[in-house]
Amino acid sequence: MKLRPFPSSILVTAAALGLMVWPLFFPDAFLYFQVLGMACLYGTLALAWSIYGLSGAVSLGHAAFFGLGAYGSALLNHYWHWSPFLTILAGSLASVVFGLIWSFFFRRLRGVYLGLASLAAVEIPRVIIDNWDSLTSGSMGMTGLDRLPTLHLGDWQLAFGADLKAQYYLLLLLVIGATFLYKTIIDSRWGWALRALRENETAATMMGIRVNRERTKALLCSSYLTGICGGLYAHILGLIEPSLVFSLHVSALPLIFTIFGGRTLFFGPVLGALLLYPLEQLVFQPLLPQGHAALYGLVIILTILFFPKGIAAWITRRASA
């Protein structure tokens, strides 16, 4: 590989190292483990959303994949007592199936209308799960799910469920892996094909790119990763309800993190999540216990108005200037 390190990849590596090392100095900062851990989870969600975004789609309905992944894992755990990591990997296939259906029915939709369709698409799994009382106990939600398991490495115990620090490291590893995956996709031939069809579908087709197939592949990757985030969420919380996982809020978060962080750079989505989520949880939550998510609405409006390329583009421009 002819990888010459950019300033931005050095920056990202430094940030990742910082995120790995700080708990050594603050071993009891449990609130921060929890908040940053969730920020990593939402960062992964934003990356998953962005994989679909590479094809030019702006989805307002990723809660559908998140919720299906959550319910898929929860049901496997509840009825068959599979161990959480297995349930997450298998249960998220529900999201992939939904992704296949989505690809077929929305294949002719672009831009605004794809956004509207995705917004409405969430309602279908939500209402079905909400009303299928015998299977999912409906709007009561499912409780008593197994927490993430404990890993025994010789004398070492990594209690991903009970120990917030171990959980933080797990989620940090997840988001680093996802970032790496996202960058690999962007730099690959497939990523190039997605970029081409995003910029001009007619021209991309004319260059021999199978636009529908590439777009579908992007959505399937995106939906599986989103489903995994949903599954993790279910087992971290130990309970889920339709209104919790199929919410507008869940659909909005990856969009907001990505646009705020920056769509054009590989670390933008994660940067957005790592900045905004802690800000919301640690600063806004105490100030406005009821409507603290108002922050997100405000942020997205200001971002589109004042720096539409996101804060990552702004930072790298400042750094290189």
Binding site: L255, G297, V299, I304, L305, P308
Partner: peptide, 25 residues
């Protein structure tokens, strides 16, 4: 700016979220 329709969609999506939370407060 362009793409105008998509940008209005995203901005008003944010506005909806903002109004929902303000009304909640």
């Amino acid at each position: 700016k362009e793409p105008y329709a998509l940008n209005t969609l995203v901005v008003t999506f944010g506005l909806a979220l903002l109004l929902q939370n303000l009304m909640l407060v």
